[in-house]
Simulated assay, not measured.
Amino acid sequence: MGKKKSFVLRLDPDDYASLERWAADEFRSINGQLEWIIHKALKDSGRKSDKKDKSK
């Protein structure tokens, strides 16, 4: 995987707390959990294939 893009994300404090608990339940960091959620949503919507996209 190439270099990752970073950006600022503002979340509602209650949503952040829920995300924090979910990440802890799955032994992930919050960043890792967000990456997993986004990857899964892109894959499930057909916007990303299982193959690594090298065209970035």
Rank of each mutant, 00 (worst) to 15 (best):
M1P: 07
M1W: 05
G2P: 07
K3S: 15
K4R: 14
K4V: 12
K5S: 15
K5W: 11
S6Q: 13
S6H: 11
F7C: 09
F7L: 07
F7D: 08
V8Y: 13
L9K: 02
R10L: 02
L11I: 03
L11P: 04
D12W: 00
D12Q: 06
D14T: 11
D15K: 13
Y16G: 00
A17Q: 10
S18F: 13
L19M: 00
L19C: 05
E20G: 05
E20I: 04
R21D: 13
R21A: 13
W22D: 13
W22E: 15
A24L: 03
A24M: 05
D25E: 14
E26L: 15
F27W: 12
R28W: 01
S29W: 01
S29A: 01
I30T: 10
L34P: 06
E35Y: 01
W36D: 03
W36L: 09
I37N: 10
I38Q: 01
H39D: 07
K40P: 03
K40G: 10
K40A: 13
A41N: 09
L42Q: 05
L42C: 06
L42W: 06
D44T: 06
D44R: 01
D44V: 07
S45L: 02
S45I: 02
G46H: 01
R47K: 15
K48E: 08
K48C: 08
S49T: 11
K51C: 04
K51Q: 15
K52V: 14
K52T: 12
D53H: 07
K54R: 14
